[in-house]
């Protein structure tokens, strides 16, 4: 059996060091903390590329298959890079019956991307997410941590324009 070669050259050394420190600080059986470690890794690296998954597997003394199995099981973990702004359109029932599908459609049109993919300019990733528990504001979408409530498809234009203009200004 050939062991896969771990190539960490594409991973940021400083962030890896932080991840190492975090893993070393964990008490008890390390394998039990796999999900927590993956959360930390995603916080640091914004997504979980395969070499990072393999790195974690080695570090926790688990098989790569076991780690990848967990990463792909849970929808919270991203295997692909994500945009600077993650737009999440809530697809909970309350939002759905108030037209969230039309909001999502408009977001996809304006960012020119497919669900869960990064837009050509690298700015946006669009996701449809499970109920975020803000049903009183349905339909709801979030951009990173900012919540937009009672969104109409026509409001989406302004929201996207707002983030594009922030980017243009910073350039």
């Amino acid at each position: 059996m050939r062991e896969s070669i771990l190539d960490t050259s594409t991973l940021d050394k400083e962030l890896l060091k932080k991840l190492d420190d975090f893993i070393d600080s964990l008490e008890g059986k390390k394998q039990e903390h796999l999900i927590l470690v993956l959360h930390k890794a995603q916080d640091l690296f914004s997504y979980l590329p395969q070499n990072l998954q393999l790195y974690i597997a080695r570090k926790l003394d688990l098989s790569a298959a076991r780690v990848n199995g967990v990463v792909t099981f849970y929808s919270y973990f991203n295997e692909l890079p994500v945009g600077k702004y993650i737009i999440s359109v809530c697809m909970g029932t309350a939002c759905f019956v108030k037209g969230a599908d039309k909001v999502l459609q408009r977001v996809l049109e304006l960012t020119g991307t497919n669900k869960n993919e990064i837009s050509a300019d690298g700015l946006f990733t669009v996701k449809d997410v499970r109920c975020i528990g803000a049903c009183g504001l349905a339909p709801v979408m979030t951009v990173n941590d900012k919540v937009y409530g009672k969104v109409k498809p026509s409001d989406v234009d302004d929201i996207i324009r707002h983030y594009r203009s922030i980017e243009n200004e910073s350039k």
Binding site: E32, H33, I35, L38, F73, Y74, S75, Y76, F77, R130
Partner: peptide
């Protein structure tokens, strides 16, 4: 505190326990 990671089935108690142990739920 143990964290979920977005899997509805983990509300089922045996799946939840699996997830707390660091496995697929």
């Amino acid at each position: 505190i143990k964290f979920g990671a977005g899997a509805f089935v983990c509300g089922e108690e045996t799946a939840l326990i699996k997830s707390m142990e660091g496995f697929r739920g």
